[in-house]
Amino acid sequence: MKLNAYVADLFGETGAISRFIARYFGELFRPKYEVRQFIRQCYIIGVLSLPLIAVTGFIMGLVLTMQLRPSLLSYGVEAQLPVMVSLAIVREIGPVITALIFAGKISSGIGAELGSMKVTEQIDAMEVSGTNPFKYLVVTRVLATTMMLPILTILSDTIALYGSYLGVNIKGHTSITLYFFQVFHALEFSDVLPAVLKTVFFGFAIGLIGCYKGYNSSKGTEGVGRSANAAVVVSSLLVFIIDLLTVQITDLLGLN
């Protein structure tokens, strides 16, 4: 593809996503509300993602602790291990890793599901059945991802800290009371709040891109595969871009 065509495509896609976002907010506040479908999506997106998020969170905490220990030991500050790990997990690694796992599971799933519905005319059938498909399919899913990811991140962080506690005790002995005393002593409100807030944006981006790619799927089953793939790639990339932006913003606000 020639460069100018690529740039034109990029701007075209950005414009289309912007219109999609504008439509999302327009439909979000306009009655009638698809409450039952929203609750169902919260269950599918949030509750059913919990086992995966819990396992990855636990491994993340355990491995990070085991990797950090030799470095801290060489500086003679092994006692600071809970502090280092908790700050790393809560501020950065927990939200980003959880969001990436979430993007891989949810964004691709939404992209494939809506893409499949599009090419098999289920979205048209929904419209004919007196339902606003955008509100029923897109608004409920994006709202669910936006609300569920912060909750999943908090749970993942907590489980990661338990994993870390286990890691600390593999080559030493620290009581759980002392471990969590050190963790909560090290963490401040300014560590937790921006980290949780950015997951709201991660969740929004992941749900929105999944829905956008699926809702605009074309070219049959090949298009469905492409939608699912593009949903993961773009939403994962957006997680890093949003992370970069939020770090800059919190830095400007003096929260770092």
């Binding site: 098999t120 059938a125 004919v128």
Partner: peptide, 26 residues
């Protein structure tokens, strides 16, 4: 009524729910 070429039945719903859906809406 509109009968779609691909049938357009909702994959995630049972036959009963597929028939209930337009009734509940309309």
């Amino acid at each position: 009524g509109f009968l779609f070429q691909s049938n357009a039945l909702y994959d995630s719903m049972t036959v009963r729910e597929n028939l209930e859906f337009p009734m509940r809406r309309h």
